[in-house]
């Protein structure tokens, strides 16, 4: 599944690893957008399954989209995709 809009042109796709599985993404798009485009809305369980990690505001405000990229805690909506990133839940 890919929910990207065809009318946009993008740099050539790269592969990142999300919870151990390869996911195709484009350099420069936000990690949050890449996960949504792949249909992976649930980013992690967080502290409480009633309020899991996911994209909500897409602009760096809500702090709900926290993830680890190569072990470092980041906001997925503010973090650009780069080839080879290893993404794990926060």
């Amino acid at each position: 599944m890919d929910q990207r809009i065809a009318a946009f042109s993008r740099p050539a796709a790269v592969t990142i690893t999300v919870r151990g599985r390869p996911v195709v993404a484009h350099p420069g798009e936000s990690l949050a957008a890449a996960l949504v485009a792949a249909g992976l809305w649930r980013f992690g369980e967080g502290d409480d399954p009633a309020r899991p990690r996911t994209a909500v505001c897409m602009m760096g405000v809500c702090q709900q989209c926290l993830l680890r990229v190569d072990g470092r805690l980041v906001q997925a909506c503010l973090t650009p995709v780069a080839a080879g990133q290893v993404v794990t839940p926060a």
Binding site: Q3, R4, I5, R10, S30, A33, W41, P52, A55, V56
Partner: peptide
């Protein structure tokens, strides 16, 4: 976003957030 039952489910996203997805990231939310 005024809370309602289920608003914390993944797939529920702000309107401004959707605008960024659609206009800047070129991604459909669903």
């Amino acid at each position: 976003i005024i809370p309602f039952p289920g608003w914390t489910l993944p797939g529920v996203i702000g309107l401004a957030a959707a605008t960024i997805l659609l206009k800047v990231q070129g991604v459909l939310p669903g």
